[in-house]
């Protein structure tokens, strides 16, 4: 069903989505979205939501299953504490993406802001995947406890770093892949830079194929540059701070 979101209060809009989803509706198209918060928030059903316009903060928060496609930029807090599902943003997105995200996929075509993937974590088969086509702000992957975070740095100006400072600081789980390498002065003390092995490349190829499929990038071209991977040095980075 189509919902015209022009001037529609988020609470009413999200209630409509929840109510119709409970009645069996599986596909929603939100036209003229303009900053409405919490779209897809806490929804457990496998519905599909297409957002035409810019959604508000906390898109897909606590989400557990739906697919959300945003045909514009997204704001802060996308996929906050998300459990399962997929968010595809045909543009850039703001700060604190995938905070505490525990499963599902977050694909951003363009750039991402500060603290992307902070405290993302994984549990058994639930492994969150975050891929951004562009560059990231400071504290990317901070406190990361699990999951896969990929930065491609496509279409950036020469000399622009792929991520800001303190990349992976406090990281104690999961993996970050960076296309084209990284300036080691920018990474946090808790991670080390390694070369990806064949298993890594297979994994990357699988997710990048999906990513390129969504946004029309050429997979071979994306894969043509070498990648590096960041891994935490320890799963217990702060274990020796204390006197027992």
């Amino acid at each position: 069903m189509r919902i015209d979101c022009k001037g529609l209060y988020y609470r009413k809009q999200n209630k409509m989505i929840r109510d119709f989803a409970n009645d069996g509706e599986t596909e929603f198209i939100l036209d003229n979205a303009n900053g409405q918060r919490y779209i897809g928030g806490g929804i457990e059903k496998k519905i599909k939501i297409t957002v035409n316009g810019v959604p508000g903060n906390d898109l897909a928060m606590f989400m557990n299953g739906p697919t959300i496609i945003v045909n514009a930029n997204a704001q802060d807090g996308v996929a906050n504490t998300m459990n399962a599902g997929e968010v595809i943003v045909h543009g850039s997105a703001g700060d604190v993406l995938g905070y505490g995200m525990r499963g599902g996929k977050l694909y951003i075509k363009g750039n991402v802001g500060y603290r992307t993937g902070i405290h993302a974590k994984e549990y058994k088969k639930q492994v969150p995947v975050i891929i951004a086509g562009g560059i990231a702000g400071d504290f990317c992957g901070e406190y990361m406890a699990g999951g896969i975070l990929v930065l491609l740095g496509l279409n950036r100006d020469e000399g622009t770093p792929i991520a800001g400072d303190y990349l992976g600081t406090g990281m104690h789980g999961g993996v970050i892949y960076l296309r084209g390498g990284v300036d080691e002065s920018r990474i946090g003390a808790e991670v080390s830079v390694l070369e990806p092995d064949a298993k890594d490349m297979k994994l990357l190829k699988k997710y990048l194929a999906e990513f390129c499929g969504h946004f029309g990038f050429d997979l071979e071209e994306v894969m043509s540059e070498p990648f590096v991977k960041l891994l935490p040095v320890s799963s217990r980075p702060y274990g020796d701070l204390y006197a027992y």
């Binding site: 525990r102 902070i118 405290h119 974590k121 994984e122 549990y123 639930q126 406190y143 406890a145 699990g146 406090g170 104690h172 789980g173 799963s235 217990r236 980075p237 702060y238 274990g239």
Partner: peptide, 11 residues
Amino acid sequence: MIPVGTDALSP
């Protein structure tokens, strides 16, 4: 919902 043996760090 975290792996066995990892520190559970709350920022």
